[in-house]
């Protein structure tokens, strides 16, 4: 426990220092934040798809839940002085942390509720349910109302309960929410990258991790060993959804604009491509490939000048997936990890 706390403190300090050092370069900060969010999404989805062996293609939906809940939270909280006398930066970061927590918890709860009935399903059926969930979230948000500033003023006068009710039902339809306070620094994003990687590693090193691997390998046999398979699948799903929600809330608070289209099926597929390319089951693979594939469009933009990369990104990802399946179906890392390289090779490949 002490070791965990001290590593967290060191990582937090390092991230804060990096944020401060590179604060002058907006381009760098934005790219670093985008990459970090992609890594959190990939590592958390890998917990479901790679380690537990279930197939979810609704991670974008959970990210969306986190983003919207996080923004509603922060827009309510920024009106109040949470820490009287404290500098603005400190209270901003406190607001952000609360927004991340509520966004993550909302997504985690949603993951638990969706997982409870659907994780009794196997393979394709689970994929269909998660796909449907992502679409439901998107369509539900598109059918809320837009915020009208005069209406909002009236509601705000009625107290915080009324405003919460107003904001939850007014998520801005397809045009989304804008003017979100930019509270996220890329240091904060990478702090969460560190947390999700550490949590995944700790889970894997524990008996719980063994149980998850057993489910991936053979569900019937895992059940016969005394593993509560449904319980473990739901738990893994809830934990992964929590981190997807945190990633969404982080994303919203540096992007400043969120629309339902950002969390659609294409987003979910993108995350699946990350982990398939990296190697299902490998956390380091998820990290490396999420970084590389997020930066790829930027690299191409600088190589090909004004060429519109966004347009060819989707076909490029599709093509990439096909090439990987044909040439290296186990992905970049297979199930291996970077941190196992130094160790004596326990498993002959």
């Amino acid at each position: 426990m002490l070791r965990t706390t001290s590593t967290l403190v060191v990582a937090g300090a390092a991230c804060a220092l990096a944020s401060w050092l590179f604060a002058s370069s907006q381009f760098f900060a934005l790219q670093a934040s985008l990459v970090g969010v992609a890594v959190i999404l990939a590592v958390s989805l890998n917990l479901i798809n790679g380690i537990t062996g279930q197939f979810s293609i609704g991670h974008g939906g959970f990210m969306g839940v986190g983003a919207y809940v996080g923004v509603v939270t922060s827009s309510l909280l920024t009106q109040f002085q949470l820490l009287p006398g404290a500098p603005q930066v400190v209270s901003d970061q406190l607001v952000l942390l609360i927004a991340l927590a509520t966004g993550g918890l909302a997504a985690g709860t949603m993951g638990f509720l969706v997982g409870l009935p659907s994780l009794r399903l196997k393979g394709d059926y689970l994929a269909i349910v998660t796909l449907g969930f992502g679409e439901i979230i998107r369509v539900a948000i598109q059918n809320t109302k837009e915020i009208a500033s005069d209406e909002l003023k009236l509601v705000q006068a009625q107290g915080i309960g009324a405003e919460l009710a107003y904001r939850v039902t007014h998520l801005g339809r397809a045009t989304g929410l804008s003017q979100i306070p930019q509270l996220t620094s890329f240091g904060m994003v990478w702090f969460w990258v560190f947390v999700v990687v550490m949590v995944t590693r700790r889970i894997l090193g524990s008996p719980h991790g063994r149980a998850l691997l057993a489910i991936r390998e053979d569900e019937v046999a895992a059940e016969a060993m005394g593993v509560d398979t449904t319980g473990y699948k739901v738990r893994a799903f809830a934990v992964a959804s929590f981190f997807a929600g945190v990633a969404g809330a982080l994303f919203a608070h540096f992007q400043a604009i969120i629309t339902p289209a950002q969390f659609d099926f294409v987003k979910s597929t993108e995350i699946v491509v990350f982990i398939v390319a990296g190697g299902l089951g490998s956390t380091s693979g998820a990290v490396v490939s999420a970084m590389a594939l997020t930066l790829l469009p930027e690299v191409m933009r600088s190589l090909f000048g004004g060429f519109n990369v966004e347009q060819i990104r989707k076909p490029l990802f599709g093509l990439l997936l096909v090439v990987i399946m044909l040439t290296r179906p186990q992905g970049l890392f297979g199930t291996h990890e970077l941190w196992d390289l130094g160790k004596r090779k326990k498993r002959p490949a």
Binding site: P207, R210, A211, L213, A214, E217, D218, V220, A221, A222, A224, M225, G226, V227, T335, K346, R347
Partner: peptide, 23 residues
């Protein structure tokens, strides 16, 4: 011991045995 053996193919023999003592 289910039909078709149902071992965990991508885990080592030792890990398989340890999972047997999971509880």
């Amino acid at each position: 011991a289910p039909e078709g053996r149902g071992i965990f193919p991508n885990l080592t023999v030792l890990e398989n045995l340890e999972l047997g003592a999971y509880l």
